[in-house]
Nucleic acid binder design. Structure first.
Lengths: 148, 148
DNA sequence: TTACAACATTTGTATATACAAATATAAAAT
DNA sequence: ATTTTATATTTGTATATACAAATGTTGTAA
């Protein structure tokens, strides 16, 4: 992709601006691809993220702040996000008996089943997005991302 | 950054998943930094983008679809975005005399002045975000971004 | 034991965004 | 000339998100 051409500017951009804009453009592609992959399951990228976090708990319940800490993009409103998963029957929610301030969330069997299908769709999308990278390039790319 | 640690997973992620998650995490930092830089000017990243597009027109007016084509993140609702710039006095909007379907948008002097200040804030943020990259690494990074 | 501070979540509200349908104008086809 | 199609923007509506204030619970100190 030619960044300057894509955003329709005649001037040559300073390398730093160009890099950040380039980054944002690629981010749009990634967001769009992930969104499309999840569309058939009627969950957002954030909801998918929460389901994966809950599965990763291996049966242990997670409360809202635990979930929020592990999320890729933190949100101010995990309550309402979990509400939506609850409506779909993908999670259970109970008040923690030992500390009634906390809410314990667990993934349901239905949630796990749906998640397995989502995993496949996401994996395919990730592979598609990265199909032009070889192993060395992926390693290099992650090292460069670490510089941020 | 250790991606696995950041998202609190015990398992080692497949390299593709890890890369995409890493990408999203860095994107959060970038978005947050840009947002903070623009906050004092009370414009969103998208509004800033539109102002830069308008300045890039060098006096020539741009209509809504032109703007939309050049935007980093396309939006379904450029009308309302321009509304906000209009309220701030940063742009003018007139119906195109030769084709009354079109709306011609131009940046005002006030908009240009504000934009100059925003430029500085954004430039500083970009430099900060990328301060650990040297020239060769930036080149390499852009080449890798091109593989998406 | 009562008051106060800290914690965890929820709710209210304002703003943002996505998507589709509606409006208005212009160009093309009959 | 009239209808149809295409173009450009606007509006309605539903959903999403951000942020602050409110609620309910627990722990601590007087």
């Amino acid at each position: 992709m030619n960044v300057e051409k894509r955003i329709g500017t005649k001037k040559v951009l300073p390398i730093n601006s160009k890099t950040i804009i380039h980054y944002m453009l690629v981010n749009n592609s990634i967001t769009e691809a992930i969104g499309k992959a999840l569309k058939p399951f009627d969950v957002s990228s954030q909801q998918f993220n929460v389901l994966r976090i809950l599965r990763g708990q291996d049966g242990q319940a997670a409360n809202l702040s635990t979930i929020n800490n592990k999320m890729i993009s933190k949100m101010s409103n995990t309550t309402r996000l979990v509400d939506k998963l609850l409506l779909k029957g993908y999670v259970n929610r109970i008040v923690c008996p030992s500390n009634r301030r906390k809410i314990e969330i667990t993934i349901t069997e239905k949630g796990k089943k749906a998640l397995l299908k989502m995993d496949k769709a996401i994996e395919a999308t990730e592979n598609q997005l990265l199909h032009r990278f070889n192993g060395k390039e992926l390693k290099q790319f992650n090292e460069l991302l670490n510089k941020f």
